[in-house]
């Protein structure tokens, strides 16, 4: 019976434990999952974030003029699960601890994280592509010290194959020949296809 009186008495003595917000400042935990931000310098546009997003809040739309793509996160759809951050291979998408989310209805469709991610032309053939971040590339080719990382990240995937074939002796690439677009891989692929087609018929 006297227990609750004691609690009430101590409550009065201790004073209110109310946070001053919204009249003053409040605390924010360091690891609080707030608004999503994306770093357009690192993003490769692989789309795994869009694939794993539970709420379908992420949209990646390439521009028709092939200058790059628009990366959009709808804060009004994002359920702050941080799956995108977990699965992003390059760490381009992160969650800040900014939770100031209330906004009037007029701003509903502007309440987004929208970044333009530009394509960079391939150093060899000029195809528009997203370069791999240098730090990530270093990690990938850690056990291959013979690969020139700085060069390889400026190449598109096809030119990278060509580059690999040229610099490694296991593939006998005629040193004199110019790197062609289809000459290297077109012929073996065709051979494979014919072989595969032929096999069941026999």
């Amino acid at each position: 019976m006297a227990g609750f009186l004691k609690v009430l008495f101590h409550n009065v003595l201790d004073g209110p434990s109310t946070d001053p917000f919204p009249l003053g400042e409040t605390f924010t935990p360091q690891r609080f999952r707030g608004k999503v931000v994306v770093d357009p310098d690192i993003c490769m546009g692989c789309g795994i974030c869009r694939h794993v997003c539970a709420a379908g809040a992420i949209s990646i739309s390439p521009r028709p003029d092939q200058s790059g793509y628009d990366f959009t996160v709808w804060h009004n759809s994002c359920c702050l699960c941080a799956q995108c951050r977990h699965y992003c291979p390059v760490g381009a998408i992160t969650l800040t601890n900014d939770w100031h989310n209330a906004h009037p209805q007029e701003e509903k469709y502007n309440w987004v994280e929208r970044k333009f991610v530009p394509y960079v032309p391939c150093a060899d053939c000029g195809t528009p592509m997203r370069p791999l971040p240098l730090s990530i590339a270093r990690r990938i080719y850690l056990n291959n010290p013979d690969i020139n990382v700085e060069r390889i990240i400026t190449l598109c995937p096809k030119c990278r194959q060509v580059e690999d074939a040229r610099t490694h002796s296991s593939c006998a690439w005629p040193a004199a020949a110019k790197p062609g677009k289809t000459a290297g891989e077109g012929a073996p692929a065709k051979a494979d296809a014919t072989a595969g087609d032929a096999a069941p018929k026999e």
Binding site: P22, C79, W99, H100, N101, A102, H103, Q105
Partner: peptide
């Protein structure tokens, strides 16, 4: 329904809701 204020979050922080009430 004509909405006046949006407080996104899943769920929003209590402080966020207070912010919405002030708005």
């Amino acid at each position: 329904i004509p909405i006046d204020v949006n407080v996104p979050g899943c769920p929003p922080r209590p402080q966020s809701i207070l912010e919405g009430v002030v708005l």
